[in-house]
Structures are given as C-alpha cells and as structure tokens.
Nucleic acid binder design. Structure first.
Lengths: 341, 341
DNA sequence: ACTATAATTGCAAGCGGTTGCATTGTGCTT
DNA sequence: AAGCACAATGCAACCGCTTGCAATTATAGT
C-alpha cells in the first residue's frame, strides 16, 4: 500500500505537496501536479481515508443503527424507505452511511453510543422512538450532531427531529371511517412499548371522543407490526358477533393485510361488510385486492430531511435545531366504504 | 474529547497502559486498571475508533455499495433482504456495515473502488452483477477481500461469490409450467443488461427446448424489475389473441404482480385462464390474491454467507475463495394451475 | 537476604495524512 | 539593480491509539 510519502519520494517533492495536490484545494504548479499524479498512478496510490479522517476529524459518514426489535422488521417498508432517503442525500454530498445492527433495544442504545463515542461518524440518525428521556439527555451531552426520526416524548428545544403528527393524522383517519358511518372501529396498534403506538392510540381516541362514540377497550389490540398480528386481532374481535367492529385501523400495512386475510377466511367482504385502513403506503398495499386504503407516512422524505439536517450541521458546523412535522396523506383506495346497513 | 493521554495523566500512568487497559488483552494489575477506569469515567473518555483503525489497520467494517440503478429498487425485497443478512452476521462479530449509494453503474464502480482504495473497510460485498471482466480483474489486484453476490460471467478460480443457479432454477420453474400443460409461456425479464437476466432467459429456453416447444421471440419482454413493466408486458402480449401466452414467468415478484394486475383489468382469471409465476418470494407475493407462486431466491442467506466469508477472511486473514450456489425453492401457491382446455 | 524470573509499566516510534508557518523562487516595479 | 509581493514548496508538529522492546518492579527460589 503506497503512502503519500512514497509518492512524494518518487515525484521528488515533499509529502505535504502530494497531500495538497490530492486535496485539490491548494495551488500547485501544473508541472509538479502532473509529476505527482504520474508517480501516484505508477504506485497505484490511493489516499487513505482513515488517516485523513484522523487528521481532519471528519469521516464523511453518517451513522444509523437499525434495531431488529421485531421479527419482520425487514419485511416492513419502513427500513428500506429510510435507507433510500438517507442514501439519496448522502450520495449527493459524498458521504457514506454506517449501519450498525442490533437485536434489542439495549443493544441499540449501546451501539448508538459506541458509534457516538468512538467518533466513527460525523453525525447519527436515531431511529428508536423508544428512547427514554435519559438517552436523549445523554445524546445531547455529546458534541456529535444527531437527529431523531420520530420526536422524543419530552420536549427539548435543542434537539432536532423529524416526524409526522401521528396523533393528528390517526385522528383524521379514524374520523374518515366515522364519517363513512362506522361506529365500532378497531385499533390494531404496533408494539405498545413504542412511542408512536401511544400517539396513534390517542388520535384514535380523539376521533371517537369528537364523534361522541364510547371508547371500548375490546376494540384495542396490538399486532406488533406483524402480518400475523393483524390476523389474530380479527380472530379475536370477530368473535364479538354483532358487537364486532365494522372497521379496522391498523398501524401499518402489514397488519392491515393480515386483517384482510383474516376477514377473507371468515368470508367477510371488504369493504362491503367491513372496512380496513392501513398505515405507511407500503408497496404491497397497492397490490393487494382490494387495494388498501392507507395513511401514507413519508418515511423516505423524513430520512431525506434528517440527512440534510445532519449534513448541514456537519459541513457548516452550525447546529440549528430543526423540529419538523411532515404531512401525511390519506390514500383512499378500495378497502374502505360506507357502513352497510 | 478526552484522549488516552488525558486519562493517562489523570491516572498517573503512561498512555500505553491506558491503551492496554482498554484493549482488555494485556495484563494490567487490577489496581491500575481500576484507577484508569475511574479516570476514564470522570473524563467521559471513549477510545477513538478512527485512531485505532489507523494504527491497527482494521476498521471492523464491511462495505457495500447500493446501486439505485432502477427506480423502485427499494420497493423490491432484494435490498432489504441483503441488508438483513449482512446486519445479522456483522452484528455478531462486532462489525459494522458501510453503505455507499450511487445512481448509475459507473458511480457504483467508482464508489466501490473509492472504498476499496481508501481503506475505509476491511472487506466489501459487491452487488452489481453487471460488473464486467475488467472490473473483477481490477478488484482482484487490490488486497482487500471482496465477495460477489451473483457470480461473475467469467470464471476466476480465486474470487469468492455466492449465488443461486439462476439458469437451472428458472428452467425448473418453466418446466413446472410446461408440466401443467402450458405451451405458450411468456418470459418477463428484468433489465436485459444485467447478467441474471441472461441466465434466466437461458433457463427459460432450456425448458422450452427440453419440451420441444418452439422459441417464440414475441413471448420475451423486459420489465426492468418494475411493477409497471409486468403490466405493460401483458398489455402487449394480451393483444396476440389466441396466440397469447397462457402462462407468465416473471423475474421478480413485483413484475409478476404487475402481470396479475393487467390480467385482472382484462378480466382474465388467474389461475383459471392464465398462470403467473414470480421470483424472490417478496413479502407481498404472499398477500396478493391469488397468492403468487414464486421461485424463492434466498437473498438473505446469500448475504449471510457473503458476510461470513468476508469476516473469516478478515479475522483469520486467510483468504480461501468460496464459490457457492445456494438452493432456490419453488413455492407453489395459487397463481398457477393446469392449462384450461 | 540476594539473585533469578516473571509480571507490569514506560518509552518512543510508528499508522498515513494535514496544515500553519518558514523558505525559496519568480516576476514586477521603480 | 535593489526591493517587494506573491506563488509554490518544504518543514515539522500534530490527529489519537498501538506495540515491540526496555526498564522497573514484584514474586519466588535457595
């Protein structure tokens, strides 16, 4: 592995000159530049990014740690969408993304801090929305820029996040169902330990309350974001007979698809007898029959924004905190309809 | 940012001792170890991974560069599956994954070599199966271990790859269709520039030839792995009237789903009138109605193997070349059936 | 108590670039 | 021809951690 000194020796110049030639910034006479480049070429020299990082204290890398906190995590469209947004931005700025894997919430936090502490990245996007107060507090103490995808529960004026207003949009979604005449509406949430689940549940309640519909604990179920979770929710709720829900709101499309599958096996027509709404606008939501009405959450855009915030903070080394809600969109397709009488 | 020297000063020892204390390898008296750790704690010291990497010439990172060579790349299950496999292995060995993004085949190669040359990773998994001979040749010259996901066209005894025998399994899949009585079978390929597309086409031809069915150029179409590609293929082929295919083989599930959507709009029953087979066993293949018969390609397992090969090469610094075909599985579900007479 | 040997710890030279400052070289001005 | 500004290089000290080897204990053997 040729170093900058080897090249310098061969080109008969000082290492610093080689460094300057490669940085492209400094002014180097055309002649020596050429000499250096041929020497580099002959030696098959490539600047060592690690050494450079150590010297300039910049890695041109942003990190993300991915929790496989539930099986099927990679079946969902969340991760690929976030990755897509990140890569898109990162690519344009000559950055890379460093991905850490983990299996549990704890490992997730551990890895996050390991990356933070060890300076392997210039910034980090933090996914886990289960982060408790202390973690965010700890994150703030480090000087490494970070942005949360999913806002923290407590309010911090100085932490950046991007999110959607889950409560508001869930309320809107459920209100749509109510407007279609539905009264008995099931809520199939994800993991109850996750912040977003609470926010959605609150939105759901808000919609019921606004319409003067009594909350009914039996209508609440948690499918942990898995297709099977949606399926079993229907199995349980279907037994309620004439008290069974006539509409289902599911916190992701996978569960909504599970709901539809269960209804199909029970010979219940969608949307004829029961309406179903999912969340996220996963690719399959469009391919399923009937096409799933879904609340589109712009995860890729959130990731884009997160990456942009981070890269701005890094390159301009200014650190304005950005807290931003993006808009969701209710995509009304074929799995919902008016209550049949 | 506290350094090892700060800790050393505070603990009253030499920096090298601190280094040893943190490495865990060397023998340090319990007493000084404790002193060092409290000092480190007080200073909120975390070893700098970059500096360590520079010194030990190891980054504990494997790289992958993701081409967005076609729109919808992130809609397909290929990328998330590969990522899942990678993260799983990588996590267990304390490695991370460095992801580069790119937009074109050229950028992809550029980034790959940039990462290779700049020593930002200890190994790299190379996805693009369009890599031509020269590129693989160039890869071999570097000393950085790499493994291809998807075997190269030319034979190299010393390059590692993992793949499935696309030709053989496509032949098997098409043979299944023939066995069901189909004769007019359409082939909806991905990007014709991609190696795997040729392999599959060959398998398709092999199956026809073996059954003595004439090859028919009109039956061949390329959908570039997009749902819409499958849809338009049917639009074109459906016009053939009684010469229209009675079965479709699509090179991924997205296109197969597009095929089914087109057939649905044309009121053609699946599998009653026409059979459809996809490839990959994407999550949605199971959720679509009728459930898609598909050739499962074990991408996650391929990635696992690739990561393992890489990490072994890195940690044992032995570099046996592993070339391995994994098995596919034809999952017969509800989108295929016997030819209706 | 006094070596011989083993266990700890210190020293210093890296790992491969970067960069502020000093030095040399070139072209102009007067 | 001397003086000066400015462009192009060279010098050397980092960035923060590792590690072979030397020096300094601590432990053991007699």
């Amino acid at each position: 592995m040729a170093t900058i000194r080897d090249v310098a020796a061969r080109a008969g110049v000082n290492p610093s000159t080689v460094s300057r030639a490669f940085s492209g910034q400094a002014k180097i006479s055309e002649q020596t530049r050429r000499r250096i480049f041929v020497a580099a070429e002959e030696l098959n020299f490539h600047p060592n990014a690690i050494a450079r990082s150590l010297s300039v204290r910049r890695t041109q890398t942003i990190a993300i740690v991915v929790p496989h906190i539930f099986p099927g995590y990679f079946e969902d469209s969340f991760f690929p969408q976030v990755m897509r947004g990140l890569l898109e931005v990162v690519y344009q700025h000559g950055f890379r993304v460093l991905v850490g894997g983990s299996n549990s919430h704890e490992d997730n936090i551990t890895q996050t801090f390991q990356i933070l502490g060890s300076q392997q990245a210039d910034g980090i996007v933090v996914l886990s929305n289960r982060l408790d107060v202390d973690t965010v507090g700890a994150l703030r103490k480090q000087k490494m820029p970070f942005v949360l995808v999913g806002r923290p529960l407590a309010h911090y004026a100085d932490v950046s996040w991007v999110d959607v207003d889950n409560e508001r949009y869930t309320q809107m979604t459920v209100a749509y169902l109510i407007q279609q005449g539905h009264q008995r509406i099931a809520f199939v949430g994800g993991d109850p330990e996750v912040a977003v689940t609470h926010e959605r549940l609150n939105g759901y309640y808000a919609a019921l309350d606004a319409a003067g519909i009594c909350r009914h604990p039996e209508w609440i179920d948690y499918g942990y974001f898995a297709e099977a979770g949606g399926y079993t929710a229907v199995q349980r709720l279907g037994r309620l007979g004439k008290a069974a829900p006539t509409a289902y709101y599911a916190a992701n499309d996978l569960m909504a698809i599970g709901v539809m599958r269960a209804l199909r096996t029970m010979q219940i027509a969608v949307p004829g007898e029961v309406s179903v709404i999912g969340t996220n606008d996963a690719p399959e939501s469009l391919h399923v029959v009937p096409a799933l009405t879904t609340l589109r959450v712009p995860y890729a855009e959130m990731a884009v924004l997160a990456a942009e915030i981070l890269i701005t903070a890094i390159t301009k080394s200014e650190r304005p905190s950005v807290q931003r809600y993006l808009d969701c969109e209710l995509l009304i397709r074929d799995s919902t309809g008016p209550l049949s009488t």
